[in-house]
């Protein structure tokens, strides 16, 4: 095993500055790069486990109330534009593909391609946020956000119970909002990664793992949206409403 033949290079002299890097970008607590990279991948996945549980609780709340109030929620969901949501879904999907290709380029140490692809991811993320901005402002314009003013234009909800429609929009803003926060954080991280590639930082150019870790995060953001899109934008018409459908709507 490699660890036996490569003992500690520490001698108690690690000050505040020289503690970070041993030779070749290996942090002092690791034996070698392989151990470090394995740790990073596992560490990133433990973080994503917490993210799964984090969003999972919201999906649970969503599922419970959607089951209980399917009709009111169906009527409320008609105010979400599934085309806009669909464009965003495709948009994130393309960004995920770019990211996967960027990691592949990082494996090949092809700096130019990595930078171009990461730039592509950034553009997709920006488009996503712009579309989200228009969706949100549209909702605010129609008073479709929870709060005392929600009742102002009740007629546009086609008779949905206003309390339950409020819950729908409450969860819509909470879940897509938290997802949006994750997109913004992702943009910051990708920006930092691009900066490192731009500056030819050996930490990223010599080793594809940092790029892979950012990729894992970004794919997770895409993953959440894969569920958010059908759950919020593509709600089938409940049976009880199908009988006296008043035209329009999702069909």
């Amino acid at each position: 095993m490699a660890s036996i033949t490569h003992p500690g290079h520490g001698d108690g002299h690690h000050g505040a500055h020289d503690e970070h890097h041993g030779p070749g970008g290996v942090f002092h607590q690791y034996i070698d790069l392989e151990q470090q990279n394995d740790s990073y991948i596992v560490g990133m996945w433990t973080f994503l486990v917490t993210e799964v549980m984090f969003f999972g609780a919201l999906f649970l709340i969503y599922g419970l109330y959607r089951y209980a109030y399917s009709q009111d929620w169906f009527l409320a969901h008609e105010h979400l534009d599934y085309v806009m949501g669909g464009v965003n879904t495709f948009n994130l999907l393309v960004s995920s593909l770019f990211m996967a290709l960027a990691v592949r380029a990082a494996q090949l140490k092809d700096r130019k391609v990595v930078l171009r692809l990461l730039g592509g991811v950034m553009v997709c993320a920006a488009i996503f946020m712009v579309i989200k901005y228009f969706e949100y402002t549209g909702k605010f314009h129609e008073n479709l956000y929870p709060g005392p003013t929600f009742t102002k234009n009740a007629e546009i909800l086609h008779g949905a119970n206003l309390n339950k429609a409020q819950m729908f929009f409450g969860l819509y803003f909470a879940m897509t909002g938290l997802h949006g926060v994750h997109v913004v954080v992702g943009m910051l991280i990708i920006g930092k990664l691009m900066h490192m590639w731009w500056k030819k930082n050996p930490m990223v150019t010599e080793d594809y793992i940092p790029t892979e870790l950012v990729g894992l995060y970004w794919h997770f953001v895409d993953l959440v949206w894969i569920f958010l899109y059908p759950l919020f934008y593509l709600m089938p018409r409940p049976d009880a409403l199908a009988a006296h459908a008043s035209g329009g709507g999702g069909h």
């Binding site: 095993m1 490699a2 033949t5 490569h6 041993g22 030779p23 070749g24 970008g25 290996v26 070698d32 790069l33 392989e34 010599e206 080793d207």
Partner: peptide
């Protein structure tokens, strides 16, 4: 196995 981390990376 690897005598330097860089080789280990390879």
């Amino acid at each position: 196995m690897a005598s330097s981390p860089l080789q280990a990376a390879a």
